[in-house]
Amino acid sequence: MTLFEGRDLDCVRGERQVFAGLSFAVPSGGALVLHGPNGSGKSSLLRLMAGLLKPSRGHLAWDGRAVADDPDAHRARLQYLGHLDAVKSVLSVAENLDFWASAQGDGAAGVAAALERTGLAGLAEVPARMLSAGQRRRLALARLFVNRADLWLLDEPTVGLDEDSIGRLQAGLADHRRAGGRVVVATHTALDLPKAERLDLSAYQPPEDAGLEPW
């Protein structure tokens, strides 16, 4: 059973220290839910896990091996969903998804199924500019189901989603975990994630005088 873990992570954005001394571990099939007030570093932690940000201290490990040693392998096993939907308005729903299917792997076969899962099958040929905010979010979520990735990093996945879509997302998450996938999610909506671990980022706020050691 492989473990995705981070040890003693410090994160700095701009010149501000966001959190310090943070550790976590997500086993295969596990779920980690990030909590904390605005600005406590939930998005930063997800970006750090994805490798978009580098920790200023500490390190990430996958199955005991440092992620920084083989960033390509790490990128190949993750799917990241940020605040932005990465949807091109002039392309149709299917074209948007087709592109990410081939850009992120070889998942062209999964496009129809992914549209089905997110309830977008009926809108496949519609230009994305006609979509509502919630539908765009669902299109972004559909990427998760196109290419098989072990680690899902989801930043506020439920923004703009209706109840039905949240239900579909939960079903998708459950399937993903049953198949051995793991998920880290930052959310303010209560998502039904059985046996999920909680990580409260307010416990890792840096001391006020961080960065002010005596000279």
Partner: peptide
């Protein structure tokens, strides 16, 4: 750039 990452600002200043 946080100050704590400077190799040692105090030593450089001296």
């Amino acid at each position: 750039m946080p100050l704590h990452r400077f190799a040692n600002p105090g030593r450089f200043m001296r």
